[in-house]
Design a protein around this nucleic acid. Structure first.
Lengths: 196, 196, 196, 196
DNA sequence: GATGAATGAGGTTTCATTCAT
DNA sequence: AATGAATGAAACCTCATTCAT
């Protein structure tokens, strides 16, 4: 990657982060290009140098955070840990990522309300991929006889993902618990649900 | 309530239900008054006879569903059942309500993105009330020694509410499980998390 | 047609005429919705009540004038006159229409620069239809032995249409000749070209 | 002219030709500097080294083609040919030039839509000059008793110019007639209009 | 000479809202 | 009680133009 390309990439990320912040606060339709730009002391027009249109901006926002998340969970799922540790790590890692990058995660909700066509396909695909890693861990846990064989994998996965995504709705840096503590608590309680 | 008032109330509810459907699908800013009206074979203008403005419409939508939910959970929490049954029933009742009135529940997300001022206060208050009922059940369970005394009530409540609210993101009438089965599965798994 | 529909139709035509005036002066891209509206003491926004978008406005403008023209020439071509009179009348009628509705005719140029897809098809089709009537008259003249059998119908038609359409570029109400006189002169000279 | 100046002049002409092509296809307002530049594998910004602004570009485009045309017709009008041959040659030469440089001629329409102030004066002046040469030929023909003394010179000139300029609207390299044949046909038919 | 980046004015379009009827 | 018509603010987006490098 040339120097110039690096510079562009950096600027793009800057914009994406700004966008994510505003998007998280106001939602897709509630966010204006003006605001995203103002956030960066840029002008509306300049942003169109980097992104084709608002949809594109949103999509790439989604991409960025999705790639981050997928990378993390893939790493955990493919590690040499036992299923218990895998699940614990997956949960913790999601909590830590979500709380530290709250604004970016915020916009992962309701893809079908924001995306259409190919973008929607992509977004849903990535979401499925993410979910799949949890299924994999759960299945492995059952096979290895450390998780309760009666659990309904699909339901458990929905419960875990729901709990994790809900964090954005209530988490605040000034809350009574640090994100570490939350991660710990979530891991503990969710594990209790699946252990024998 | 006079006959006329009844008629108005009925019409209002009709509009609210239509609005909820569209709002659920497209989100607040993505929904136009036109669409809501068209859905009812009405005209945009007419709706202003019943609602002061779009915000008001959204707010009353929110109210309607919140009242329904609060009523249900209050009933359960104040019943004579033991904590286990209370929690089971609270979960089940939420699942059944959410799946049957999906469109109405859909819009309960992110109140701070939609409401301001007094309306926001109200909405957050109701949400807190709802959450409080779960806390109450959990506390009672611990006191009565049927729930694990080590659980972190706040965290558990967040997990439960997260799992419940997330249902809207994946539930489909044509899915592999009926809402009854889902309710059952959720109750079972979530209970496992809190039992001794 | 109901009263209301009539009113709408009238308003639409009002707008179309205003649009035609501005379009004639500034060309398609040079014309703004603002100007068209201002011309009628309307607001930009109001025009979208009557027309889907700018393209739609332009297209219907084109339609209006094309229908007028086609009607006129069809009438002449299908009359009982001899070919000489037919050609004379067709020319005269075009001159009179073009000079009296200069602004509307002005925009018939370069349809492929303004229209796309189906609209382009339509516009080109109508243009072909119009041209066809001239061919028909010319052919009839040759068959009836009143026009020179050596003329190249296609070329002659192009010459006539070119001369007629060019009028818009130079005609002015304050010019030295009335539109009647121009019509007369055009008819005379163009006829001379085709007579035996 | 220094070598450097020559290089610049060459580049300028390159740009003008590219611009003419795009302008012909999309019209003034429909053409973006971006497109013109892209056509030459240049960047938008670079073009401002050669041209002050878009208007300037258009104007110089117009100039280039106008000079070409004027040169041709002046040559014909001032030749030693008899009026008949002069008119025939003027017509033919215009046809051949217009068909071979279609894109450049295309933009000669409606100067008052594109130019203002001094540029408009200039453009109209050149147009008048061009027209004048036809008048001169026609007058000479009448004086020398080879053209019908009853023709209305102004009208005939308008007919001829209209027919000639219209060619751009229908001519295509793949059409049934070569440009030579068209030139021939136009000369023949238009002459017939003015001969005794 | 050339260009990448930024800008801002201006255009099109949408939509909540109003109001006379 | 309903609605057709109008409005204007605000959104998205384009593009000629500039300028540092």
């Amino acid at each position: 990657m040339s120097l110039r390309e690096k510079k562009i990439a950096k600027k793009k990320e800057e914009i994406l982060r700004s966008a994510a912040t505003v998007l998280a606060e106001k939602g897709y339709h509630g966010t204006t290009m003006e605001e995203v730009a103002a956030n960066l002391l840029m002008t509306k027009g300049s942003m169109y140098y980097y992104f084709k249109n608002k949809d594109d901006l949103l999509y790439q926002c989604h991409q960025m955070i999705m790639e981050l998340s997928l990378e993390k969970i893939e790493q955990v799922a493919n590690s040499e840990l036992n299923p218990i540790e895998k699940l614990r790590n997956a949960v913790k890692s999601h909590v830590l990522l979500a709380t530290s990058e709250k604004s970016m995660f915020m916009m992962m909700d309701k893809p079908d309300q924001h995306f259409t066509g190919e973008h929607l396909e992509d977004a849903l695909g990535q979401r499925r991929d993410y979910a799949h890693f949890f299924d994999k861990i759960l299945k492995e846990g059952i096979e290895k006889n450390v998780f309760d064989e009666n659990i309904d994998i699909r339901m458990v996965r929905f419960i875990i993902l729901g709990a994790l995504n809900w964090i954005l709705q209530w988490y605040s840096e000034d809350g009574p618990q640090t994100s570490e503590e939350i991660a710990q608590a979530f891991a503990t309680h969710l594990l209790k649900m699946v252990l024998k």
